[in-house]
Simulated scan of single mutants.
Amino acid sequence: MSNDSNNYPSSSRRESTPRKLPAPPLAQESKRVSRPLPRIPRALVCKQCGTCITSHNVLLPTSAIPPDSRSFRGFFGKASLFTETYNVALAKPGVQLMVTGAHTMQEVTCGICLSYLGWKIVRAHEKTESWKDGHFLMELENLYVQPDLLNPRRSSSGSDSDYSP
């Protein structure tokens, strides 16, 4: 029986020696720039069945909302505009007369328990309101913030009627 290591000439075999790594830069040499951490998404869930409906990270940014339109109200109280929703069912579009004019809207219900959650604004008929097109007006009374499982001190109580994003 032959030893495989003897089949190779000794000149072609290299001994593995640890490489020397460069020393890390000193603290004063470091040019690291501190960046804020991204916002951790907190799920908003259906108050009736707990199904995830949307999250904080898809709230319509304040910069996209005109200054005179920052306080949204639904049929049951405070509401917020979101760019995306999940696990929902949309009703047939219809025209609704709102304080800000006529809008073609679809009722949004929970895809699991069919509880009313808000509206999808398909089209605002007033040109000044067209920035709302395609967004979801979710009534906060029908949703609650899913408790933060990683940090129990930050978890919310059951109702978010005083929730302000």
Results as ranks from 00 to 15, higher is better:
Met1Arg: 01
Met1Asn: 10
Asn3Glu: 04
Arg13Val: 01
Arg14Cys: 04
Arg14Phe: 12
Glu15Ala: 09
Lys20Asn: 01
Ala23His: 00
Pro25Tyr: 04
Ala27Lys: 06
Gln28Trp: 06
Ser30Phe: 12
Arg35Lys: 05
Pro41Val: 13
Pro41Gln: 12
Arg42Val: 14
Leu44Cys: 07
Val45Met: 10
Cys49Thr: 09
Gly50Leu: 02
Thr51Ile: 14
Ile53His: 10
Leu59Gly: 05
Leu60Asn: 03
Pro61Thr: 06
Ser63Asn: 07
Ala64Pro: 00
Ile65Glu: 14
Pro66Ala: 15
Pro67Asp: 15
Asp68Ala: 15
Gly74Ala: 15
Phe75Cys: 15
Phe75Leu: 15
Phe76Val: 12
Lys78Glu: 05
Ala79Cys: 14
Phe82Lys: 02
Thr83Ile: 12
Thr85Asn: 05
Tyr86Ala: 15
Tyr86Phe: 15
Ala91Leu: 10
Ala91Gln: 08
Pro93Cys: 13
Pro93Met: 06
Val95Gly: 04
Gln96Trp: 03
Val99Arg: 05
His103Ile: 08
Met105Tyr: 00
Val108Gln: 03
Ile112Thr: 15
Ile112Glu: 14
Cys113Phe: 11
Tyr116Ala: 12
Lys120Ser: 11
Val122Phe: 04
Arg123Met: 14
Ala124Arg: 01
His125Gln: 10
Glu126Ala: 14
Lys127Asn: 14
Lys127Val: 14
Thr128His: 07
Glu129Trp: 01
Lys132Thr: 06
His135Asp: 00
His135Asn: 13
Leu137Trp: 08
Met138Pro: 01
Met138Ser: 07
Leu140Ile: 15
Asn142Met: 14
Tyr144Ile: 01
Pro147Leu: 12
Asn151Phe: 04
Arg153Leu: 15
Ser159Lys: 03
Ser159Asn: 12
Asp160Glu: 08
Asp162Asn: 13
